[in-house]
């Protein structure tokens, strides 16, 4: 028996990897595109360019610098929200409270400015209050092991409720500094201009890129998304970092609220309903994995721009209801989630 089994026999040729005459460029391209790290971001970038070109071909006047810059002007608050949300989602968490926090920030701003507070103090107060709210949410998640979904849902209801405590009606802002910030245009060239809000948003983006990419705190954020357990065993400050990301998100929501009040010059309790979902959508479309660990702030900015360009196209189309934006975003989100699944599973 044994002898029979041991008899050597022609071994089938081991399948050798096919030589790639097309060189390593193709392989490298494929590697980059299927990498969970960079693949989705690149796909989003390509998508943005394609949609923008389609818009340019279809509608006269679309292909202008100002249309592009308006994407930033109209969405500066969403960019700031998406930055904060990126921190949270990179750790594998979620923050549902950001839309309501934007609303309550506009309410605080409008009501305090009405009673004659100085704008500098009002803005500082808003940023402190929303950061503290983020801190409380973070502590709730860390100390009591509450699911981020539930903890931030509670914060969402709290913030939305506070809006109505402040006022049931819209309060308009007529304070000169806010008005000035709302109407000022910073010229960038012939026929091109941006608002101060865009500058603020871009500064936030730059800081976030640096923090996430080049500081220990930022790398710990990625580590937690990769594996919280491993991060802890590696001696990283997991608990502290997890709490701080919600502070970051709270701060960003407050800042987004301030930018939003520049944009609308009013405070209204029902404002920014569902904006948290836009921010999450932008982050996911921007290539950040909902399970955490992979993603870039710049991807999230791209995600916001994609949402913005879809909205712009629907405005240009003119006949379509603006709700089509939501339908497109929904479809896009679905495609991206599936794409992420495919990319990450191919890697495993």
């Amino acid at each position: 028996m044994t002898a029979t089994l041991d008899t050597p026999s022609p071994r089938p040729q081991a399948p050798t990897p096919a030589p790639a005459p097309r060189g390593s460029l193709f392989d490298r391209l494929r590697d980059v595109l299927t990498s969970p790290k960079s693949g989705p971001v690149l796909v989003t970038a390509v998508l943005f360019v394609v949609v923008f070109v389609i818009g340019g071909v279809r509608y006269p006047g679309f292909f202008s610098g100002q249309v592009f810059l308006n994407l930033f002007v109209d969405n500066s608050y969403l960019i700031v929200l998406a930055v904060g949300m990126t921190f949270v989602i990179l750790t594998g968490g979620i923050d549902l409270s950001v839309g309501a926090v934007v609303a309550v920030s506009t309410m605080i701003a409008a009501s305090l400015l009405q009673t004659g507070w100085s704008p500098g103090v009002v803005i500082a107060l808003i940023l402190v209050l929303t950061s503290v709210l983020g801190l409380l949410v973070g502590l709730m998640i860390h100390v009591f092991k509450v699911q981020p979904f539930i903890a931030t849902l509670a914060a969402m209801f709290l913030a939305r409720g506070l809006c109505y405590v402040i006022s049931k009606d819209s309060i308009s802002i007529s304070e000169p500094t806010f008005v000035a910030l709302a109407v000022t245009r910073i010229p960038l060239g012939p026929g091109l201009s941006i608002t101060p809000s865009v500058v603020i948003a871009l500064v936030v983006v730059v800081i976030a890129v640096w923090v996430l990419g080049f500081t220990r705190f930022g790398r710990t954020v990625y580590a937690i998304g990769g594996s919280e357990q491993s991060g802890m065993l590696m001696g990283l400050p997991v608990a502290r970092t997890k709490v701080i990301v919600y502070v970051v998100s709270g701060f960003c929501s407050g800042l987004a609220g301030v930018l939003f009040s520049f944009y609308t010059l009013s405070g209204y309790p029902l404002t920014a309903v569902g904006t948290e979902l836009d921010a999450i959508a932008a982050v996911v479309i921007g290539g950040t994995l909902l399970t955490g660990g992979y993603g870039f702030v710049l991807g999230s900015v791209l995600g916001v721009l994609v949402l913005g360009v879809i909205q712009t196209i629907i405005t240009f189309e003119g006949t379509l209801s603006s709700w089509w934006t939501k339908i497109f975003i929904g479809a896009l989100l679905l495609v991206f989630i599936i794409l992420q699944k495919v990319l990450t599973s191919r890697r495993r």
Binding site: K37, F214, R216, R219, T220, A223, G225, G226, Q229, L236
Partner: peptide, 25 residues
């Protein structure tokens, strides 16, 4: 192996003890 598959080899070795310059890694 309690490491982080989503980060680079170098980061996995030095995470938490990264050499820094002007506060940046």
């Amino acid at each position: 192996v309690n490491l982080l598959p989503n980060l680079s080899v170098a980061e996995n070795i030095l995470l938490g003890r990264e050499p820094r310059r002007f506060g940046s890694i």
